[in-house]
Nucleic acid binder design. Structure first.
Length: 404
RNA sequence: GUGGGAUUAGCUCAGUUGGUUAGAGCACUAGUUUGUGGCACUGGGGGCCGCGAGUUCGAAUCUCGUAUCCCACCCCA
């Protein structure tokens, strides 16, 4: 038997596909309410796109990409995340030159060559939003409120973690200060941290090693090193969240794994899905458009991991809907199918092809959650009528076929 | 990539010190007067015991390899 590849799953189990489509519908609705519109970009992109956007130092680019050479000799890659492609499309269509505000949402498969576990797959799905052209921190707040709205509508509880990563005025200075601090304790830190010092020094801050953590207690704090602009934006953001009753915790060690973030960084986490607890993450990336050869454009975005959310979604109770059509005589089967065809122009119809007694038709109608069970037997066939029972109201009537 | 646990019916799981035709619940299906659903009763289908070697008279059971899932590390959505 041929099986799907490691970490690549079908979404068709009982409840799963219902949850998946319900999520997409809900998230789409909220995103549209916020003025975002749908965009679809290719799964395959030039490898250079991800190297320049996500960053060479990240694990994603370093070891997790599905990268290969195609038959034309091009170095290509299955997208490991969604932002890079959207930014590329934005620039390619010269929207950076057009000016104005552009807001997009997308959803689709992403690929990372990792060791799978619960909530971590090699092919997984993200829903994401990207906003271009708004430098104001109000837009950052808007994005966070949007995620909050989506999660609330889906009945999903969360904790929101917030940080500011600074911008090109304060971040490089902080980075230098941190590196010299790390050098001062370098002999006592773990191997991983020694490696991080050169690849991505900020990452040492969330090292799990206890000895490292005790040493880093004295490290300079990013949050204390923000320049005036970053600090006031961060304060404004927190004020807006307070005003809108969105609870958050500031986590000065929250460092996003992708290099392109600056200023606002946020992560929504759930305590109910195992160790892969991040269900949504995002932040501001004001420099990315110019890194990818576009005209400098402020931008902010987020992505949600759909698989991680699925089991947390509280599904609305399923209501009976549509019609079930059945015949009690062979002679009526063809007629039933014709009726079904007509009715389907406007309604959802389940049609049973085998003649059965009334009891079994009612069972069948109940099983497909139909609202109305409609049956034609010999009596009905003679009189050109159809028997209809409303399974919810428990009322029944026999009406003329013409009125069906 | 490194460690640990698991894998038996569509699903959740039993299966004795290795011993005949491998079980249960749920689900599915058919009946229980050709006229009243959710319940109940009685039948039925469905398993290369993850896959491949080995030990043995004999393997779901013991050994090795391999694949996948789960957990931790790493990292992220």
């Amino acid at each position: 038997m041929i099986k799907s590849l490691r970490g690549m799953n079908d979404i068709l189990n009982d409840e799963e596909y219902k949850r998946y489509t319900y999520f997409i519908q809900t998230a789409t609705k909220v995103a549209k309410n916020y003025g975002f519109h749908f965009i679809e970009t290719p799964i395959l992109e030039e490898t250079a796109l991800f190297k320049r956007s996500v960053g060479e130092s990240s694990d994603i680019v370093g070891k997790e990409m599905y990268q290969f050479t195609d038959k034309g000799g091009n170095d290509v890659c299955m997208r490991p995340e969604g932002t890079a492609g959207v930014v590329r499309a934005f620039i390619q269509n010269k929207l950076d030159r057009a000016g104005g505000v552009h807001r997009y949402f997308y959803h689709g498969a992403m690929f990372r060559y990792e060791r799978p576990q619960k909530g971590r797959l090699r092919q997984f799905h993200q829903f994401g939003c990207e906003s271009f052209g708004v430098a104001s921190v109000y837009e950052d707040a808007n994005m966070i409120m949007m995620v909050s709205d989506i999660l609330k509508e889906l009945g999903i509880g969360y904790r929101l973690q917030l940080n500011s990563l600074g911008d090109q005025n304060c971040m490089p200075q902080y980075r230098d200060a941190l590196v010299s601090f790390i050098e001062s304790v370098e002999s006592e830190i773990c191997e991983d941290c020694k490696r991080r010092k050169t690849t991505n020094p900020i990452r040492v801050l969330d090292c799990k090693n206890e000895q490292c953590q005790s040493l880093y207690a004295n490290a300079p704090k990013l949050i204390d090193s923000l320049c005036e602009g970053c600090q006031s934006d961060f304060d404004t953001l927190k004020q807006i969240l307070d005003d809108n009753e969105i609870a958050y915790e500031t986590d000065t060690n929250l460092v996003r794994g992708l290099d392109y973030y600056s200023k606002t960084a946020f992560e929504f986490v759930s305590d109910n899905i195992g160790s892969q607890s991040a269900i949504a993450g995002g932040g501001r990336y004001d420099r990315l458009v110019e890194f990818l050869d576009g005209r400098a454009t402020p931008a902010v975005g987020f992505a949600m991991g759909i698989e991680r959310l699925l089991e947390l979604i509280v599904m609305p109770q399923e209501k009976r809907s549509g019609y079930y059509l059945g015949a009690m005589d062979d002679a009526a089967v063809n007629f039933i199918l014709k009726l079904a065809h007509q009715k389907r122009q406007t309604k959802k119809v389940t049609c049973e092809y085998k003649p059965k007694n009334l009891k079994n038709h009612l069972k069948g109608a109940d099983k497909v959650h139909a609202r109305f069970c409609c049956v034609i037997g010999s009596n009905e066939l003679e009189n050109n009528t159809i028997w209809i029972k409303d399974l919810e109201m428990k009322t029944e009537q026999t009406i003329n076929i013409k009125d069906f």
